Amino acid sequence: MEEHGLNERQLIGSRIREARVGRRMSQADLAAKANISLPHVSAIETGKTNMKLESFIRIIEALQVSADSLLRPDVPEVRSLYQSEFDELLADCSPKELDSILKIVREVKSTMTRREDND
């Protein structure tokens, strides 16, 4: 399946990169934690190489993410995992914090939509 001109390998690599960056990890950090060479991590993230199942398992363990979130984020069960994570993150926020977070999320979403429209 291709989406936005990317093949499945590139999409998964992009999701791995997003998960890594979201956890404030460098490629070198991920390589070390997953026991994979830095060039291989780079090639995986850019979709230039196929990865073995063993490498994928090491990556999801190093990133502490669900395999589903990297493979099929559009599956309803994965969407509910994201929703649950958002609920947990927001549970102890004050109304002022919630308002600020909502404004940030709206701006990020708007920026992402503009970028997609320009692609």
Rank of each mutant, 00 (worst) to 15 (best):
V75F: 10
S94C: 07
L98S: 07
L53V: 08
N50S: 14
L102N: 11
E18L: 09
S84N: 15
L102R: 13
I101P: 02
L89P: 03
E54I: 05
A43R: 15
V65T: 05
R58N: 10
G47H: 13
E61C: 01
R72F: 03
I57Q: 04
S110F: 00
M112V: 07
P95E: 14
M51D: 08
A34K: 00
Q83K: 14
I104V: 07
S94F: 07
P76C: 08
M51Q: 12
L70H: 06
N50D: 15
D68M: 06
S55C: 03
K52C: 04
L30R: 00
V108K: 12
K33S: 03
I36T: 03
A31Q: 11
D74M: 11
D68C: 02
I59S: 01
P39T: 13
V41N: 06
L102K: 11
R72V: 04
T113Q: 08
S100Q: 08
D92Y: 04
R58M: 04
Q27I: 06
R23I: 01
T49A: 15
L63C: 06
A19H: 04
D29R: 03
R106L: 07
S80P: 01
L70F: 03
S69T: 10
E77W: 01
E107H: 09
E77G: 04
A28S: 14
E54K: 11
A32R: 11
I60E: 09
K109S: 11
A43L: 12
S94K: 08
D29I: 01
S42L: 12
R115F: 05
Q83S: 12
P95Y: 03
E85N: 11
T111L: 05
R79L: 14
I104N: 05
P76R: 12
E88G: 06
G47F: 09
R24S: 15
K103N: 08
V78H: 05
R20F: 00
A31C: 06
A67N: 04
Q83D: 12
L30H: 01
S37N: 11
D99P: 01
N50K: 10
R24P: 01
K33F: 02
T49Q: 15
S80G: 02
L81R: 15
I104Y: 10
I44W: 05
G47D: 14
R106Y: 06
D87R: 06
C93K: 14
I36L: 07
R20E: 09
L90F: 05
S66G: 03
P73E: 11
D74L: 06
V65C: 03
R106P: 00
S94Y: 06
P39Y: 11
V75C: 06
S94H: 07
